[in-house]
Write a protein that binds this DNA or RNA. Structure first.
Lengths: 162, 162
DNA sequence: GTGCCATCTTACGTGAACGTCAAATCTGTG
DNA sequence: CACAGATTTGACGTTCACGTAAGATGGCAC
């Protein structure tokens, strides 16, 4: 998968795309990207001179995360805003962590990040439990039907053997 | 859990409740129950002489199933209608199964029920996989922060020991 | 029969998450 | 520069899953 660049591709991966390609890549509509910006969920990485939105890799990753939280976990955009805001805060905590030498402060920062992550983890874990239960129930039914089918087949064999 | 009936409770569990109590028991609004009926998702077990809806245990169980599919799996009511319709069909298949003696027909009926259940199972299983992955990722982060905290604590001890 | 609360039908309202359309502007190409 | 196509900012429309209010009935105690 090593790509032979026909043009000298920039080593730094800060390529920006405009809204059309960004929407394509993220698998959402342009309207959705603008809407996310409206409600303070996602800011473009920057803007062109003329005012066109420019999306970088980080912004696209954020869209992916938003969709994940939305479709997989079932959070609404307001809740998602809470989560990603906290994650942003974790990022700035990381910066703060690297800039302070006070060990007590560093511990406090880590503790905050830990709490945030634990809360989301608990929620997701609970959901996994419930869905897994659901899945197992379905698996049982599938096994039940399979057993019934096998029984049918056995009877058929016996009949043809008699 | 053997209940001592203060009044001669009917041995048969075909008690019916009206919409108010049904909504309470199911944890939804009365409007929701009527709406489900509107869109052909749920029919009351019967009606009183005057026209009041009467809900039995089966109807209440169906509401629970609907909510499960909605909140847990994230299906919309149209998709849910598809699922429960197929489940109803499985029920009628069971009846047909018990009323026929033709082994080929019995196999065919079981096979149909199997297919339906397998399809839903596959969908749910896929979702569990993805969410579990998500959960594990979060667990990793939690562990990471915990490790960082432990490191902080150790350093603090060393400092106080010196 | 008379209250009184629950329930009925009908119908309009709502919030979330976008869709869609119009008119102006930007961007890249010949 | 001229032109085509992408993008911009409003602003109104839409779908889903109900909420809510109004007026008429039902169910039941007294």
């Amino acid at each position: 998968m090593t790509e032979v660049a026909s043009s000298p591709a920039p080593a730094t991966d800060d390529r920006h795309v405009r809204i059309g390609e960004a929407a394509q890549l993220a698998g959402v509509s342009e309207r959705t990207l603008r809407y996310y910006e409206e409600i303070g969920l996602l800011n473009p990485s920057g803007h062109s001179a003329g005012g066109c939105r420019e999306y970088g890799a980080a912004a696209l990753a954020r869209v992916a995360r938003i969709r994940e939280l939305q479709e997989l976990i079932g959070l609404n955009l307001e809740e998602i805003r809470g989560v990603v805001t906290r994650e942003d805060r974790i990022g700035s905590l990381r910066d703060a962590f690297n800039q302070t030498d006070d060990p007590r402060e560093r511990s406090a920062l880590v503790l905050e990040a830990l709490d945030m992550t634990e809360a989301l983890h608990a929620r997701v874990a609970a959901k996994v439990e419930r869905i897994a239960e659901f899945r197992d129930e379905l698996a049982d039914r599938v096994a039940h039907y399979r057993a019934l089918l096998a029984e049918r087949a056995t009877e058929a064999e016996e009949r043809s053997a008699s």
